[in-house]
């Protein structure tokens, strides 16, 4: 084997992404329910079960059936859940429990490649989950125009807006205790009050501005308008810009916290 081949030409971050993909090939079964079964269960329970009740009384929510209203919201919240779960315990595991990052750093990979590869993997996971969810929505007849396809990157973006800053935080932690706090005081309230199940105009007046600054609100609004086909360009750009800014800030923070943690 020649020296050139040994040093390799494949981009370094792709090699780190390769590890996560390789590992997933061995462990994918456990994430199947999360990816494919949960969307159907949620849509069935919330959309059809609760939906018939809601529709019976108020007929429509924002001009559509409750199932059509709640479906895209659940897409955004699923993206949030995957973004959070992939950037908490797996990051801690790679740092401390399995020392995956340490192993990578003994090879040609640099800290920045380790981070980029892991985030790229989270993007791929978000893409599969969003794709599965959109497929389910389409199967329920809830997608109305070609714009619904744009909800796929919107779902990914929503997830990354959570994953990047949380990965930055996870890299500062010695124990996993803070993760349950993130779920209890972050994920669960956002899931309930960011407009997934009812328009935030139903919240008390003082709570509405608060709901509007949460990333999930923007993810839900973006995904919903795209799936329902009533997206305005200005609103969509506004929502997307907010999520992009959060993801970018998270990436910058993670570059710093990863370096501080791994370069000693």
């Amino acid at each position: 084997m020649t020296r050139a081949a040994r040093d390799g030409a494949r981009p370094l971050w792709l090699r780190s992404l390769g590890y996560w993909a390789f590992r997933y090939k061995r462990t994918w079964r456990s994430s199947m329910t999360e990816t494919f079964v949960e969307p159907v269960l949620y849509l069935a329970a919330m959309g059809i079960g609760l939906g018939t009740l809601v529709d019976h009384h108020v007929h429509q929510v924002q001009g559509v059936s409750y199932l059509a209203f709640v479906g895209p919201g659940l897409l955004a919240s699923a993206a949030m859940q995957v973004g959070v779960s992939e950037s908490t315990y797996p990051v801690m595991g790679a740092l401390k429990w399995l020392k995956t990052y340490e192993a990578m750093l003994a090879t040609p990979l640099r800290v920045v490649d380790v981070l980029r590869g892991h985030l790229a993997w989270i993007v791929l996971r978000l893409a599969t989950v969003s794709c599965a969810f959109l497929g389910t929505l389409a199967a329920f007849g809830l997608t109305r125009s070609w714009e619904a396809a744009v909800a796929l990157p919107a779902g990914v973006l929503t997830g990354v807006a959570f994953a990047a800053p949380i990965a930055a935080f996870s890299a500062t932690q010695e124990k996993d205790a803070a993760f349950s706090v993130i779920y209890r005081f972050g994920v669960v309230p956002l899931f309930l009050f960011s407009g997934v199940f009812f328009p935030i105009t139903r919240l008390p007046g003082w709570l509405q501005p608060l709901a509007q600054v949460t990333p999930l609100y923007h993810g839900v609004a973006l995904c919903r308008s795209l799936v329902l086909g009533d997206a305005s360009l200005a609103d969509s750009i506004g929502h997307a810009a907010y999520l992009v800014a959060l993801a970018a800030a998270g990436y910058a923070a993670a570059s710093a916290t990863y370096r501080r943690r791994l370069v000693v």
Binding site: R6, A9, F22
Partner: peptide, 11 residues
């Protein structure tokens, strides 16, 4: 072993 070799871009 295989996954580690891939960091070095070994085919």
């Amino acid at each position: 072993l295989v996954v580690y070799a891939r960091y070095f871009d070994v085919p």
